[in-house]
Amino acid sequence: MVVSLLDAGLGAGLGAIVGLILALTGAGGGILAIPLLVWVLHLPLQTAAPIGLAAVGLASAMGAAVGLRQGVVRYRAAALIGVTGMLFAPLGVALAQRLPAQPLLLVFAAVMAWVGWRSLQAPQGDQGASADAPSGQPPPCLVKADGRLDWTTPCARALATTGAVSGLLSGLIGVGGGFVIVPALNHRTDLGLRQVQATSLAVIALVSLSGVASAAWHGALDWALALPFALGAMLALLAGQRLALQLPAARLKQGFAWLTLAVAASLLFKALN
Score class of each variant (00 low, 15 high):
Ala77Asn: 09
Tyr75Asp: 15
Val40Ala: 12
Ala61Arg: 12
His42Ala: 15
Ile51Lys: 03
Ala65Pro: 06
Ala54Ser: 12
Trp39Asn: 10
Ile51Met: 09
Leu22Thr: 03
Ala64Glu: 10
Gly52Ile: 04
Ile31Val: 15
Val56Cys: 04
Ala77Phe: 08
Val72Thr: 15
Arg74Ile: 10
Gly30Ile: 09
Ala27Gln: 12
Gly67Thr: 02
Leu53Ala: 08
Arg69Cys: 04
Gly67Ser: 02
Gly67Glu: 04
Gly26Val: 04
Ala55Ile: 03
Gly52Asn: 07
Gly71His: 01
Leu37Gly: 08
Val72Trp: 10
Ala64Ile: 11
Leu37Cys: 06
Ala23Thr: 01
Pro44Ala: 13
Ala65Ser: 14
Leu43Cys: 05
Trp39Glu: 13
Gly29Arg: 02
Met62Trp: 11
Val72Leu: 08
Gln46Ile: 14
Arg69Phe: 03
Leu37Tyr: 01
Gly67Gln: 08
Tyr75Lys: 14
Met62Ala: 14
Val66Trp: 11
Gly63His: 07
Ala49Gly: 11
Leu45Asp: 05
Val38Phe: 09
Arg69Tyr: 07
Ile51Arg: 05
Gly29Lys: 05
Gln46Phe: 12
Ala77Tyr: 12
Gly29Leu: 01
Gly26Met: 00
Leu32His: 12
Arg76Ser: 14
Gln70Glu: 06
Leu41Pro: 04
Gly30Val: 07
Val38Trp: 02
Gly28Asn: 02
Thr25Asp: 10
His42Trp: 13
Ile34Gln: 12
Gln46Tyr: 09
Ala48Glu: 07
Leu32Thr: 14
Val66Lys: 03
Val38Glu: 09
Leu43Gln: 09
Leu43Glu: 07
Gly26Pro: 09
Val66Arg: 11
Val40Trp: 11
Ala61Pro: 12
Thr25Phe: 11
Ala33Phe: 03
Gly52Met: 07
Ala23His: 00
Leu24Asp: 00
Pro44Gln: 13
Val66Leu: 05
Ala55Tyr: 03
Gly63Asp: 07
Ala54Lys: 03
Leu41Ser: 02
Ala33Asp: 11
Gly30Thr: 05
Val38Ser: 13
Ala59Asp: 06
Trp39Thr: 14
Ala59His: 02
Ala59Ile: 02
Ala55Val: 06
Ala77Val: 14
Val56Glu: 01
Gln46Val: 15
Pro35Trp: 05
Arg74His: 15
Gly29Tyr: 03
Ala27Thr: 10
Gln46Thr: 13
His42Tyr: 12
Gly57Gln: 04
Ile34Trp: 04
Leu58Asp: 09
Leu43Gly: 04
Arg69Asn: 00
Pro44Thr: 13
Ile51Ala: 09
Pro50Thr: 04
Gly67Ala: 02
Arg69Lys: 06
Gly52Ser: 11
Tyr75Leu: 15
Trp39Asp: 12
Leu37Arg: 00
